[in-house]
């Protein structure tokens, strides 16, 4: 199996995953994930046709609920919100 090495851009992945990684951890984490990815890559030794007919863990189909509304005590949820203004959640601006 061809090793996956240079193509790993940890900064880009961390940005996609929204995880801040300190400069000092960067090297160590890159090394760890490279080792793991190349271990995972072992599965590509196995030559099998890839079926796109999707596998689902559950053998069930057509499970649904009726369209009946129900209320929930919203304040119990708001109690957990770290930053609020009135009943609004406060978020830093996007961009």
């Amino acid at each position: 199996m061809k090793r996956i090495d240079k193509e790993i851009d940890l900064e880009k992945l961390a940005r996609l995953a929204r995880i801040q990684i300190s400069k000092k951890d960067k090297k160590r984490i890159t090394k760890d994930i490279l080792e793991i990815i190349n271990y995972f890559n072992k599965i590509n030794e196995l030559k099998i046709g890839l079926s796109y007919k999707f596998f689902h863990q559950s053998a069930l189909e057509n499970v649904w609920r009726e369209d009946i509304p129900k209320n929930f005590e919203a304040n119990a949820i708001l109690d957990q919100v770290p930053n609020k203004k009135g009943r609004y959640l406060r978020s830093p601006k996007i961009g």
């Binding site: 499970v63 649904w64 609920r65 369209d67 009946i68 509304p69 129900k70 209320n71 929930f72 919203a74 949820i77 708001l78 009135g86 009943r87 609004y88 959640l89």
Partner: peptide, 30 residues
């Protein structure tokens, strides 16, 4: 199962653990 009639409601009153994405909740299809 939150109401689909959300208009003219006080902010964040028409919510439940599922549509707020609380840990452990699962979606069920209407």
């Amino acid at each position: 199962p939150c109401s689909s009639d959300y208009r003219d409601k006080e902010p964040n009153t028409n919510i439940c653990p599922i549509c707020m994405g609380l840990p452990g909740t699962l979606p069920t299809l209407n």
